[in-house]
């Protein structure tokens, strides 16, 4: 089982690691690169806690092999804040108490950022269907949806 050398870009930084070809991108992020912000809740693409973007496309990193990251641009929760400045979604999640245990939070933030990058004015229904693949067991989603809608409004320059 020989490992494969992978060169990729993660949150703007060039990163190299050796991947067992069976390892998922999530395994490599967590165990090889030390980025444990992406979580494994299911390993089957059903919970969204491992959400990242690969070349701008939102995916479950548990359903991507580490070796597939070669030459790609990977973005994770660790790259969402710019320096010390939180992304408005991150700030709104805190303000709205949109997290309880916080385990699904990184995946939800990455997923909702991908939504707002594509659709700055989603309806509540569009938000709910976009994040249908991000399970949260604590909140009943109410405050999460409100936080995303509020962050979208702020990003559009509307007063909260």
């Amino acid at each position: 089982m020989s490992n494969i050398h992978v060169t990729t870009t993660i949150n703007g930084d060039k990163v190299e690691f050796l991947a067992d070809p069976r390892e998922t991108l999530l395994d490599c992020l967590r165990d090889k690169v030390g980025l444990t912000g992406s979580k494994e809740g299911c390993g089957t693409g059903d919970c969204g806690a491992c959400s990242v973007t690969v070349d701008g496309t939102l995916v479950c990193s548990c359903l991507v092999l580490g070796v597939e990251a070669e030459g790609k641009d990977i973005r994770t929760i660790e790259g969402m804040a710019e320096g010390g400045t939180l992304h408005p979604l991150q700030r709104k999640f805190i303000e709205h108490a949109a997290l309880q245990c916080g385990f699904c939070t990184p995946g939800l933030l990455v997923a909702s950022k991908a939504l707002l990058d594509k659709n700055p004015s989603p309806t509540e229904e569009e938000v709910r269907y976009w994040i249908a693949g991000n399970l949260c067991r604590c909140t009943g989603y109410d405050k999460i949806v409100r936080a995303i809608m509020d962050a979208a409004a702020e990003l559009r320059g509307e007063a909260a």
């Binding site: 967590r30 912000g37 991150q90 805190i94 916080g102 933030l109």
Partner: peptide, 23 residues
């Protein structure tokens, strides 16, 4: 009142360490 939770920053940045995050 409704202040920001003390562990909020850790939990929205991926820094908070859960069970599987330890080596």
């Amino acid at each position: 009142t409704r202040p920001d939770r003390p562990d909020g920053l850790d939990k929205v940045t991926g820094r908070a360490r859960y069970g599987a995050d330890m080596t």
